Amino acid sequence: MTLDDWLNLAALILILIGALLCLTAAIGLLRFRDVPTRLHAATKPQVLGLILICLAIALSVRSWEVVAFLLPIVLIQLATAPLSAHMIGRQAYRNGTIDEPGLYVDDLGDSRRTPPAAGG
């Protein structure tokens, strides 16, 4: 087998693993019941799956232009997924849809008693 064949095989395996991770993220969104576990399912395997798929595309095409195109996609995904999960989790806490007795640490407990515009 030549180097091209090995790189194509690695790309195929990476796409398969990335697709399976994205599938598990979708299944986790449907199966999990509460907001924190759904957030973990929506962010962690999905981001890793996207990174693996982008890496597979870069290995398959073998072009610096493609790598330059895929790098911002990965960086934007790494920047936006945790931020969106944080905002969704915070809003779920404020709405009262999170099981508060099940929380080990409640960092937002004091901010809930203080109105947001009070400066505290």
Rank of each mutant, 00 (worst) to 15 (best):
A11F: 02
R113W: 04
L3S: 10
R94E: 00
S84R: 07
L50Y: 04
G89R: 03
L7T: 09
A85Y: 09
V74E: 00
I51H: 00
A79H: 03
T97Y: 10
L108F: 11
G49E: 09
F69K: 15
A118K: 06
V105F: 14
Q77M: 09
R112H: 01
A10Y: 04
G120P: 03
G119S: 03
D99E: 05
W64K: 06
E65N: 14
P72N: 02
L108Y: 11
G119A: 07
L48H: 07
P82M: 08
I76L: 15
C22V: 11
L9P: 01
G102I: 08
G102A: 15
T80D: 02
D110S: 14
I51T: 02
R113N: 04
L23M: 14
T114A: 11
L83K: 08
R94M: 04
F32T: 04
M87A: 14
H40S: 07
D107P: 07
I51W: 00
L16R: 03
L50S: 11
A10C: 12
A58V: 15
I88K: 03
A79K: 07
A19Q: 04
P116L: 13
P82K: 11
Y93L: 14
G89D: 04
I27K: 11
C54E: 03
S60L: 14
W6K: 15
H86V: 01
G18H: 00
C22G: 08
G89F: 04
S84Y: 01
A79L: 15
T80G: 06
Y93G: 07
R31L: 07
L3M: 11
L29S: 08
L50V: 11
G28T: 14
L71R: 04
V105P: 02
A19L: 13
P36I: 09
R94I: 10
R113F: 06
N8S: 10
I27D: 04
A118Q: 08
I57Q: 01
L50K: 00
A92D: 05
D34L: 05
L29Y: 07
A118P: 01
I15R: 06
S63A: 06
L9D: 08
I15S: 10
L14S: 13
P45Y: 10
W64N: 12
I51Y: 00
T43L: 01
P82Q: 10
I13A: 15
A58C: 14
R113A: 15
D107R: 11
G18Q: 00
L7D: 03
D106Q: 05
T97K: 12
L30W: 10
L7V: 08
D107H: 13
A85T: 09
R94D: 03
V35T: 08
T37W: 09
R33N: 13
L55A: 15
R94W: 04
L30T: 12
V35I: 15
